[in-house]
Design a protein around this nucleic acid. Structure first.
Lengths: 103, 103
DNA sequence: TTATTAACTTACTTTATGTAAGTAAGTATA
DNA sequence: TATACTTACTTACATAAAGTAAGTTAATAA
């Protein structure tokens, strides 16, 4: 039968969002730059997977890793412009969830 | 450290969307009701996982299963109102992907 | 020299997904 | 009557992804 009439860019975007945790990580970073352990505890992800996801998101150009050589070293993750541009999308998810899901 | 200041409804919505394939299934059904094998071939999902996802989405009230007792029996899956309500959200994903991803 | 701290890694277990073959129900055909 | 046909699933088994907990690294402070 016919295969993928779906726009490959849309498919890619969905692929990013449908990976476990990426949505929550991006949502969390919309509040501003955050450190590894802060993201870890706020969304309940394991360190191993967070490490993987941050690398993926950095490769996608969605997240940026900033190193501050203090003592101890401080590393902050923040959204790039590309990542910030997901805000309206997140707002739509929020809107849908407010309307259609129960508390 | 502090845990989940995130709205549970938002978290649930993200949970649905971040399950592999659900986004594409919903997106596909925005084109109108479709049969099992049609969804299967259009997005390239395995029958087993499609079967699981459709059950989940039915339980969530996002997808409806309609049986037409013809020969052979025809079964169509369509979006409920709750499912249709995801259209703006999908449009935002599309918009983001058009702006920020390369072809 | 030892301790401290955050940011990871690694080894291992559990869960999710993929593959391919098989089953069920309801006809139609030989 | 028996066999085949079609779609919509299931099942058994293999591979990949995610979770857990302990360990490593790097920079400096005590």
């Amino acid at each position: 039968m016919e295969k993928s009439l779906i726009c490959p860019r849309f498919e890619k975007a969905i692929g990013i969002l449908s990976q476990r945790w990426t949505g929550l990580i991006i949502y969390q970073l919309l509040n501003g730059p955050q450190r590894f352990c802060s993201i870890e505890s706020s969304i309940g992800i394991s360190g191993k997977v967070l490490s993987d996801r941050l690398k993926d998101l950095e490769n996608e150009g969605i997240v940026k890793r900033n190193v501050y050589p203090e003592t101890p070293v401080r590393i902050e993750y923040s959204l790039t412009e590309k990542g910030q541009a997901m805000e309206p999308l997140m707002q739509e998810i929020e809107k849908w969830s407010q309307t259609w899901l129960e508390a």
